[in-house]
């Protein structure tokens, strides 16, 4: 399904006479249409931060993504199909980014390159950083990495090509740009005391009223941070070490107690409520993949056992051999 190659063109459901093979091809309009689009994805020449350097490296001689039909980087949004958000999206910058997106003609795609564009990345907590471009624009492909290697970026773009292959002209949901009219532009955020998303105006207003009335306002139950006992203080550890040298029986007792504690902690960790889904925020599911990947039960992981781990690795190696 993915490629439109010669073999496929010649072996269709409709038999092509032998003498005409290679001269006549039969395919569906959707396939032809998708093939031409996927093979001429023009990205916008638009770099934000460090990831842009890797994007340029991807375009340069060694990795050369023009091999996949993406070579023509256009500086003008009017001429581009794909916005590669390559870097940290700041509050100050998201305003022009949304404007640029609105200026791109449909069909248009957004690829979030790197941790920053996908979910805020290393700078997520910063006061001027937007936690992922998907808070403002719909994203088609996320490429993880900080920065993603050129290979990863090419992989992401191939993933986008696959997505295009899957779209059908017969399905209006796939190709809404042939529908009633131009799409609604994405609302451009406003720079007030902090950045204001016009879609959240109501929420902000309600919140301000509540604040004026001296009440706190919560739209969802915030998960309680799990209280974890601090690790045994240093003094105790030192004591344990001393005990180990002095009195083997006592050391054994101490070790057992430790293990019991660890088990208890693990059990607590599992009972803790899992993080709730993102609620009302206009957040596609993929935001902050890192955060979701970390389940609560890590809380009371038993101590790292180097010996056991080494044994495991050795076994694995042996299996491979």
């Amino acid at each position: 399904m993915s490629e439109l190659d010669l073999r496929e063109l010649n072996n269709t459901e409709f038999p092509i006479p032998a003498d005409m093979q290679g001269n006549v091809a039969i395919t569906s309009l959707s396939k032809l249409y998708n093939w031409s689009r996927r093979s001429s994805l023009w990205p916008m020449l638009f770099g934000l931060a460090c990831c842009a350097i890797e994007m340029i490296a991807t375009a340069a001689a060694r990795y050369d993504f023009s091999r996949f039909g993406m070579e023509v980087m256009r500086a003008s949004p009017r001429q581009s199909d794909l916005m590669i958000v390559s870097g940290t999206v700041t509050k100050k910058m998201v305003v022009p980014i949304v404007r640029l997106y609105n200026q791109m003609p449909e069909p248009k795609y957004v690829l979030a390159m790197g941790a920053c564009a996908s979910g805020g990345g290393p700078f997520k907590e910063g006061y001027n950083v937007v936690s992922g471009i998907d808070k403002y624009l719909p994203v088609d492909v996320y490429v993880p990495g900080c920065p993603p290697t050129p290979q990863a970026l090419i992989y992401g773009m191939i993933a986008l090509q696959k997505k295009i292959d899957g779209q059908s002209l017969a399905n209006m949901d796939d190709v809404p740009w042939y529908g009633v009219g131009p799409a609604e532009p994405a609302p451009v955020p406003i720079l007030g005391p902090d950045i204001i998303d016009p879609r959240q105006m109501d929420l902000i207003r309600r919140q301000a009223e509540m604040a004026a009335a001296g009440k706190t306002f919560a739209i969802r139950n915030l998960p309680e941070p799990i209280k974890v006992e601090k690790a045994a203080p240093k003094a105790a550890a030192a004591k344990a070490a001393v005990a180990a040298t002095d009195d083997p029986a006592k050391a054994e007792r101490l070790r057992k107690r430790e293990e019991a504690l660890a088990r208890k902690r693990a059990a607590q960790g599992q009972n803790a409520p899992a993080a709730e889904p993102a609620g009302e925020a206009p957040t596609p599911a993929q935001a902050a993949p890192v955060a979701e990947a970390a389940p609560a039960e890590q809380g009371g992981k038993p101590k790292f056992d180097k010996e056991a781990m080494m044994a495991k690795i050795r076994a694995k190696k042996a299996n491979k051999g």
Binding site: K135, P193, A275, A288, A294
Partner: peptide
């Protein structure tokens, strides 16, 4: 740390994103 529990900062923010407004914000 040392528990290793991670949650997304968005979940603790009413707006679900990295914003905070002053109490006297007048739209």
């Amino acid at each position: 740390w040392p528990g290793g529990h991670v949650y997304r900062a968005e979940e603790r923010n009413v707006y679900g994103k990295n914003v905070a407004y002053p109490d006297d914000l007048d739209l």
